[in-house]
Every structure is written in structure tokens, then in C-alpha cells.
């Protein structure tokens, strides 16, 4: 018997030499999500800081500025709203922004420490592995957002009807996906952990401040048309607006389209960046 005919100790599925069954794909995906969940549970300080950050903005910043920053009636709001209510969707997106960047940081760390390599030597297609990791990160970020909403509820931040909590979910999933894919793309471009702080400054702060998270864009336009255009092309603005409308059981169609386009672009770029033949990893050496 030649070697090629020797029975394989763990039989390949009948569907072909490379194929895995749908059940095996599911096992792989749930394994990645399960691990991310366990890590999240073990890192309580990460959870606490993810909650404290938006709460500080809500309780201190918004309370301080509610007299200074008046918000006129703009969709989706049908009445005057308190400043706290206005910035709540921005804070939900901020949780996801930090989460996306943090998982990007952990990917750079994992790559340096080797954990990312154990993921990448799995025989599943690489796009599926990266997608699973992304999915797990988004699930964790949504969990954080709802924990924030639970506390914010006692601060009288709530959707017009309870359905708002449900309609916000797809918006949070898409914005989480966009921010996670951006983080993944960044993680492939960053050579070393030390370079990360700079990227945080150049990504998180500009994205957050040059958006509609803290002030409506018409106000920005009044003070600087140039900055207004920056805010308009900032994907974070559209994540915030999509969440804001969804929380009020409405759809911000333009934001949805823009966000979908950004998400696809970041996803494709991240998958290409992790592709062994084309990827950025090759240029750096092991």
C-alpha cells in the first residue's frame, strides 16, 4: 500500500479534499465566539472600563454642557431633547469604536505573541477565520452597548417605545462590523505594538470628534464648512446616525448605504491584508 492510499487517522469529509461540513464551520465559528466570550469574562476591568467611559461622558460631560449646547428639533427627534439624549447614540457607537480598536490591539499583540498564528494555521479558509473573529468581537461590543443602555435607562435615556431596543440591534451589528473590520485592517498594517498608541490618537479621537456624536452637523457647518465635509465622509458619523435613527425605530437610508459601503471596503482590504500571497505581513518578516 502506498502512502497516499494509507487510511487517514481523521477521515476527510466526503465533500472533497478541502471541504468541511456546514456543521464543522459552525463548530469553528462557535469556538472562536466562545473563546472571545471567555476572555471577555476573565477581563473584568476591560468590561468595567468599557462601561465607565461612556458613563463619564453621559453623567459629567453631557450634564455640564446641557445648558451650553442647545439642540434644535432635528430628525429623528420630534421634540426638543436633552443633550444627554442627543449624545447617547454617539456614546453607543463610541463603545463599539473602542471595542473595535481594542480587538485590533489584541490582534497585534496576538500576532507578536503567536496566538494569531494558531488561528491562522487552522485549515478553514482564512476569510472565514477572520470573519469569525470579527463576528465574536461585534457580539461582545453589542453586549457592552446593552449594558450601557441598562444603566442609561435610569438616567432617562430610553427609546420612545421598548421596540427601539430591538430595532437598534441591526444598526449596532453593522456599525460594530464596520469598526471591527477597520480595526482588523489596522492590525495588519501596524508593525509592532509600540506603534499602536499613535494609531489610537490618529484614529479614535479624530473619528469621534469629527462626527455627529457630540453635536449635530448643522452646527459644525455653521462654524466650519470644511470640517462639515470631513464629518460627512467620516464613517463614524454614519454609524452614529444609523444607531440614532434605529433607536427611534427609523432608518437613516443614506447612512445605511454609506456604512455598508465602508464596511465592505474595510472587510475586503482586511482579508487581502491577511492573505499570505498579497498580504502586508509578508513585508515585515516573521
Amino acid at each position: 500500500m502506498t502512502d497516499a492510499e494509507a487510511p487517514h487517522p481523521y477521515p476527510l469529509p466526503a465533500s472533497g479534499e478541502r471541504g468541511f461540513s456546514a456543521r464543522q464551520y459552525f463548530i469553528c465559528l462557535s469556538g472562536v465566539v466562545w473563546r472571545e466570550g471567555l476572555r471577555f469574562l476573565h477581563q473584568r476591568e476591560r468590561f468595567v472600563s468599557a462601561l465607565v467611559r461612556p458613563l463619564v461622558w453621559l453623567f459629567i460631560f453631557a450634564a455640564g454642557f446641557r445648558q451650553v449646547l442647545g439642540v434644535s428639533i432635528i430628525p429623528p427627534y420630534e421634540t426638543y431633547v436633552l443633550y444627554e439624549v442627543y449624545i447617547a447614540p454617539g456614546l453607543m457607537a463610541m463603545i463599539q469604536l473602542f471595542n473595535g480598536m481594542q480587538s485590533s490591539l489584541s490582534m497585534v499583540y496576538d500576532r507578536e505573541m503567536g496566538n494569531m498564528r494558531t488561528l491562522l494555521v487552522s485549515p478553514f479558509p482564512r476569510w472565514f477565520l477572520l470573519g469569525s473573529k470579527l463576528f465574536a468581537g461585534v457580539a461582545v461590543s453589542i453586549l457592552q452597548v446593552y449594558a450601557f443602555l441598562l444603566i442609561a435607562y435610569f438616567w432617562e435615556i430610553e427609546p420612545p417605545t421598548t421596540w427601539g431596543y430591538l430595532t437598534a440591534l441591526p444598526a449596532l451589528a453593522l456599525s460594530g462590523l464596520m469598526l471591527g473590520a477597520l480595526g482588523m485592517l489596522l492590525s495588519s498594517l501596524i508593525k509592532q505594538l509600540e506603534n499602536f498608541a499613535g494609531v489610537m490618537n490618529f484614529v479614535i479621537f479624530p473619528m469621534f470628534f469629527a462626527s455627529s456624536a457630540l453635536y449635530p452637523l448643522w452646527r459644525v457647518k455653521e462654524s466650519s464648512p470644511w470640517l462639515y465635509y470631513v464629518c460627512e465622509v467620516n464613517p463614524f458619523t454614519h454609524a452614529v446616525e444609523l444607531i440614532r435613527f434605529a433607536f427611534y425605530e427609523k432608518v437613516a437610508w443614506t447612512s445605511l448605504a454609506v456604512l455598508a459601503a465602508y464596511t465592505s471596503a474595510f472587510l475586503i482590504a482586511a482579508i487581502l491584508a491577511y492573505d499570505p500571497a498579497r498580504g502586508m505581513l509578508m513585508r515585515k518578516g516573521g
Partner: peptide, 23 residues
């Protein structure tokens, strides 16, 4: 060469995670 176990997880959890990556 680098240690790649997840230090926060138990030994068995590390093994189960790896097995999932192989379906």
C-alpha cells in the same frame, strides 16, 4: 517559538478552542 496558550483559560479550554479551529 512563542508561547501561544491563552493564559486566562484553563488547559482544557485551550484544547477545546484549538479543536474547534479544526472542526
Amino acid at each position: 517559538q512563542a508561547r501561544t496558550l491563552d493564559l486566562e483559560l484553563t488547559v482544557m479550554q485551550n484544547l477545546i478552542y484549538h479543536a474547534a479551529l479544526h472542526g
